[in-house]
């Protein structure tokens, strides 16, 4: 059966340039959890979300929807879409920046360290659960489940092909090519 090549095909620099927020992506940032010390370049490209909040939010969004084979770029792009909305909505900007600060405060209370610096995912999840009912959490969760999974680049990684009409549908492209069930 026709399976998909899930290898990354885009150039990270161009990918971020094409994101709505046109985040300045100078240099390569390694995948996984961002380092805590310096302000990463992508976060400086945000307009409404402050750099410290951005670092916290990036880890939060990864923890909400953890996909180990997805680099940070996909999560950054999702966050950039929320930054774009917050740039036009001061209430939302305040909610995101304050929310990130409160998440760090909760992390300090429970684990004596800022959220993004907590090493174990399970410990961060414990902190997240403590704020699960806040409007901030619900807003980030609800917006990110759309923004993260609405990226064609993410679809390719998960094995979804997106639009098909322009390719003539699947009638000649494997709609019935399942071959692992006998006499199906």
């Amino acid at each position: 059966m026709r399976v998909l090549d899930k290898r990354t095909r885009f150039n990270r620099r161009n990918f971020l340039k094409t994101s709505a927020a046109s985040v300045a992506a100078a240099g390569a940032v390694s995948g996984g959890v961002v380092s805590i010390g310096a302000t990463p370049a992508w976060a400086e490209g945000l307009t409404a979300i402050k750099p410290d909040a951005a670092k916290t939010l990036l880890v939060m969004v990864r923890d909400l929807y953890p996909h180990d084979r997805l680099g940070d770029a996909y999560y950054e792009k999702a966050l950039a879409s929320m930054d774009q909305a917050a740039a036009k909505d001061a209430t939302l900007a305040g909610q995101l920046n304050d929310g990130a600060a409160n998440l760090d405060a909760a992390a300090r209370k429970l684990r004596n360290t800022p959220y993004a610096a907590i090493k174990a995912e399970a410990d961060r999840v414990t902190v997240l659960k403590s704020i699960e009912t806040t409007p901030f959490f619900r807003k980030v969760r609800g917006d990110m489940v759309v923004a993260l999974y609405n990226q064609p680049e993410v679809w390719a990684k998960l094995g979804y092909e997106g639009a098909s009409a322009e390719y003539g549908g699947y009638i000649h492209r494997g709609f019935d090519d399942l071959d692992w069930i006998k006499d199906a």
Binding site: L4, P66, E121, R141, V146, W155, L158, G159, Y160
Partner: peptide, 28 residues
């Protein structure tokens, strides 16, 4: 459902590894 709607409707409000691992298996 495609990936966007699967994420929205599979278990509305869910998050964390239990949820995302299902989407990791989307094509299966």
């Amino acid at each position: 459902l495609g990936v966007p709607f699967m994420a929205a409707f599979l278990d509305p409000g869910a998050w964390g590894r239990d949820f995302s691992s299902a989407l990791d298996a989307y094509d299966h």
